[in-house]
């Protein structure tokens, strides 16, 4: 039991070291990952709760009255993992397990997956209801940032 605790403790320490060290590496990613919407969508800003509800299929109706269409990246990308880690603090296996319970009822679907960031930009740039997450650096004029992790 004590051994287990110690192991748990060392895991947390390792995680803490990772978290502390990662800004040097991922600081661009953390600061840079933003949620984007179509520049004409009328959406100005989304709360984190709204983002969670939309991406995890609870509510997709937006304040504008339209139904949001979240775009997810495929599991091959590190960005997806970072996104869900930042959003609900869960790894991708957990996210997949969550969805596997719901997909059988057929009422709610997981977000549409695309293979890369370019495809995200393309869909969001063309669809007013679409939402996507990309690096800040990739933001273009067709999209606007509706949610970003400002250090928190």
């Amino acid at each position: 039991m004590i051994i287990n605790k110690i192991r748990l403790l060392s895991c947390s320490t390792l995680l803490a070291i990772l978290l502390v060290c990662s800004p040097a590496l991922a600081e661009p990613a953390l600061n840079d990952l933003v949620l984007i919407a179509n520049a004409d969508s009328g959406i100005e800003h989304l709360t984190k709760r709204e983002v969670i509800n939309i991406y995890l299929g609870r509510y997709r109706r937006l304040d504008t009255g339209s139904t949001a269409e979240p775009i997810d990246l495929s599991s091959k990308t590190d960005t997806k993992a970072l996104f869900y880690r930042l959003l609900v603090d869960k790894n991708l296996a957990e996210i997949n397990a969550y969805w596997s319970r719901l997909v059988f009822s057929g009422k709610t679907r997981p977000p549409q997956q695309v293979d890369n960031v370019d495809k995200v930009l393309e869909i969001v740039g063309n669809n007013r209801n679409a939402l996507g997450y990309i690096n800040r650096a990739a933001v273009n004029s067709q999209v606007i940032i509706v949610f970003e992790w400002s250090g928190t």
């Binding site: 609870r58 969550y98 719901l102 059988f104 009822s105 009422k107 709610t108």
Partner: peptide, 17 residues
């Protein structure tokens, strides 16, 4: 756990199961 997911997602089907 499952029920909370059903409730979260308002999934009547899952809840019914």
């Amino acid at each position: 756990n499952t029920a909370s997911i059903a409730s979260f997602a308002h999934d009547e089907q899952l809840a019914s199961e």
